[in-house]
Write a protein that binds this DNA or RNA. Structure first.
Lengths: 198, 198, 198, 198
DNA sequence: TATGAATGAGCCTTCATTCAT
DNA sequence: TATGAATGAAGGCTCATTCAT
């Protein structure tokens, strides 16, 4: 039963199993046992690789964060030059499509943010995530409107994205909700840009 | 020594202690013991009144929901006739002021929504909350714009409120964020109404 | 299966079971389970009463210490006036007879002293025990010889008692060894007193 | 990079690391990992060399025993002919100086003796140690007094040495205590010899 | 009604040992 | 010879729940 693997691959397997477990059983229902069962490894190996459950959870959040970040980069870089408006659309798309690909992953996010209030490290990671969305939006809006207006536009858009994300996640049919959300957020951006031209 | 209390009062004490415990220790850090300590009663009595921890948590959510609902009613009824726009403002205010008064209460909400995904009863309660905000908004918008436009306005506004709530809750200075959020949501409503007049 | 007892009695039962377990399985072989099995109670109850295994062990040492102390007091008080020499004999007797009554209890002491090096609380308790023997001896010697001589006599006697105790405990037939030890320590005291008279 | 070492040297490195670990963390705090870290080798290699942790511990005790034995031999042989009294002094010195050089090593002994009660092999080794001290003392006393007297003298001296060792080890300033102990034991020997001359 | 002692399943973690490399 | 990934039983401890008082 001894099946050595590449250390890096093992760690990622465990992180994936962790996310899957949270998706299936919730954070409070996720135990070392549920994770090890999903990853098909022994319970001891998890601590061997991550030290503690808490550390593993933090690694899992970092993994999600990194996925979102690299997803946006890839999406933006897919074509050469794109307009600022196009860029805003891409940001919206990335935030929703990455969840469409794995709808229940958003439940995992939600669990983590709920825990963030009582975990400094999770809180820190959440702040990074929150600020990244804001600054990405702000950067694009700056090319299209005065500074003062752009600041508010970025904030509003970030909130609308997060709000649609939250409501979609909690809705009874998340997948349909995400598609709708993406469309509405783009419409909102249109409105802001049209108003800016006046 | 032990003055018998109204059963109803006892139950509310326990619910309040539950909310306080989640605020202080998080949902995962909240146990029957932390609750009984905060409520200053024995652990046995809690089960006697609520049957199980799960039932108690559901009661706590219902309590929060009811608070929000009655808060809005009171706020709307405080003056006689108010315009539809004024009504929209009041809805926004109610959503944020209740959290400004107790910023950490919003963390309790967040914990509940995270659990909602894996608890039918919590999920049901969350749906009620989500729909109530939406239908309240829709009702007011219907007086100010065509149906199709109102549907989207209500959805967007609900999302923006929830998004600002989420981001404010998770921010490092929630209190300031809530004040800012309220202002921005009102500005957004203004925008929608101005556009509707065209 | 719910058998409430007097809280104090329960605590003493658990302490007794702890001592029995260390006697049977050694300190490293003593687990919450071995203790709970010997006390015929559930594992949870131990933490309920003592908080942690470490706290329980400290209570067990305190119990042994108290037994030794009260044993000496009782032994000294059994007759009215006794001579200083008789007093010294009684101290020796108490130290060995308490172990003859329960020969394996001395193994428990040994385990605790070995742990004392890495536990401040155990170390503190050991110091109390060590000093008590010394000062009891010193008090009696002072009545029989000059101060300077008495200091050394007390130290030597304490060491001889502890040394015989250690060697007897580790010997293959501890019970016989303890009887022999008691006799030799008394002889040693005689020697000191005879020399003092010159 | 890895210069192969003499197998024997490797084994001794591991034993030394074991003793160091017990000194630092206690017997219960000593794991294969703490040992391998101190010896700077892998955990697998330890089992490869010693078969099991228990075997390693026994090797460590044998190592200490051998050190003590050869220490005495060397000390006795340092000069040509010495008197029986001088020989007794040397035995005392050897027992205390080895611990003065490394006071915490005595804690390791103590840990081993505590475990001896529940391990036949450790018990056997302890008996060897105990008897060696006794027979060494007896051999010297026999040259100075009648057999019956010598038997008791050897036993008392052995107990006093062990007693002082135990009390010194457990004292708050072991180093000073060991020096004092050595002096007192020599004084005790003087007393016995003076009394023997009458 | 009210208490908290008592239960025991289940949690995270540790650790000696094994074994593929 | 040497490594450390992998195992899994066992450890201490937590906690919702029950129940004698």
């Amino acid at each position: 039963m001894n099946r050595p693997k590449q250390q890096h691959q093992r760690r990622e397997d465990i992180v994936q199993a962790t996310l899957k477990s949270i998706e299936l059983y919730g954070l409070s229902g996720t135990t070392i046992k549920t994770i090890s069962a999903l990853a098909d490894i022994s319970v001891g190996l998890i601590n061997h690789h991550f030290g503690s459950k808490q550390k593993l959870l933090e690694s899992a959040v970092r993994f999600l964060l990194e996925q979102l970040r690299s997803g946006l980069l890839q999406h933006l870089a897919s074509e050469g030059d794109i307009s600022a408006k196009e860029r805003l659309y891409r940001i919206v798309e990335t935030n929703f499509t990455s969840f469409q690909q794995s709808p229940s992953a958003s439940r995992t996010w939600l669990c983590f943010w709920a825990e963030a209030a009582h975990s400094p490290e999770l809180s820190r990671l959440q702040q990074i995530n929150s600020r990244r969305l804001y600054s990405n939006l702000l950067h694009s809006y700056r090319a299209l409107m005065p500074r003062q207006q752009a600041l508010m536009a970025a904030e509003m858009t970030a909130s609308m994205i997060d709000g649609y994300w939250l409501r979609s996640t909690l809705s009874s049919s998340p997948e349909q909700a995400f598609i709708n959300a993406e469309q509405h957020c783009k419409t909102f951006i249109d409105t802001l840009l049209v108003n800016a031209e006046h």
